[in-house]
Amino acid sequence: MLQLDRATVHFGHRPALDEVSLDVATHESVCVLGPSGSGKSTLLRAVAGLQELDAGRVLLGGKDQRGVPAHRRGVGLMFQDHQLFPQRDVGGNIAFGLRMHGAGRDRQRSRVAELLDLVGLADAAPRPVGELSGGEQQRVALARALAPNPRLLMLDEPLGQLDRSLRERLVLELRELFQELGTTVLAVTHDQQEAFTLADRVVVMREGRLAQTGTPMEVWQHPADAFVARFLGFHNLTAATVRGEAAETAWGGIGVPAGSRQGAATVLVRPTGVRLTDSGAGLDCRVTARTFLGGQVAVHLQPEGAPRLEALCPLHSAPAPGDKVTVAFAPPQDGEIVVLPAEDAA
């Protein structure tokens, strides 16, 4: 459906998009994930035709889109802050794209009703958009983008400005809706939870390049490097020297899976792989703080003369700040320890 072929965009000397190649298949949902400034919005704008490429190609349905203006590409874009037209009411916003495509009045009316129904805002057509709540605006923006039946729907931080609980609910709704409609989706977000829920495939971007591509499970289990791991929220990372199935780290020796890369490396220990023991053998730490995550507690640990560690404990057995604890690492077969390439000295 969509192919990017070494797409490159420069802003001044800085590449915002650096030879990015990416395929999105029909009915597939792809989510581009990256920190702000990583070039993910530029990627969407390049596909939309709102940003010219300095090099490379964008193909839609196999056709090179060079010189095709934005309104002829047949793609939809949901903007970060929705960009609803303030002069029009809800119905007027949704009907806009239909009007631009020359749909008749009756067709417009029925399609608006159909879409409002779809996003759960039946009867909202005559309301002014200024009165809508954040979640309602998001639904109207979605309905507006879907109305002309775009062959590819792009979402730019679709839930960025909403509060957390609403976001968690809406992202599930979006996912179900897109699966039901069979929409081809390319979304960008900086929120990994959103990306992992929404997407069949996740693309992590860093400084205009693709850092990793894979299914949510693949990326989650095997981050490509320390950058991706950190971006996914993992903080237990340390430089290591790997020999055979053992890694020498600031936290002491850690067993790593067979077949791990050898020599200088970075070792990632998931918080679930940091286990508090009573056996006395292991790394002595002091508890500095706790964060509560639903049914579990993240415990922040300060070992003697080594980087901090984060461990996940069940609610009932979490130590209190100031407590002294001993830490052991999970055995390699649990999949909690991952060996990544060594980070640059920089």
Binding site: A48, G49, L50, H71, Q83
Partner: peptide, 17 residues
């Protein structure tokens, strides 16, 4: 906001429209 115009363009409006 120039993105208002861009939003219209994405919905099929030409530059002039």
């Amino acid at each position: 906001d120039p993105r208002q115009e861009e939003a219209a363009r994405m919905l099929g409006a030409s530059r002039a429209a």
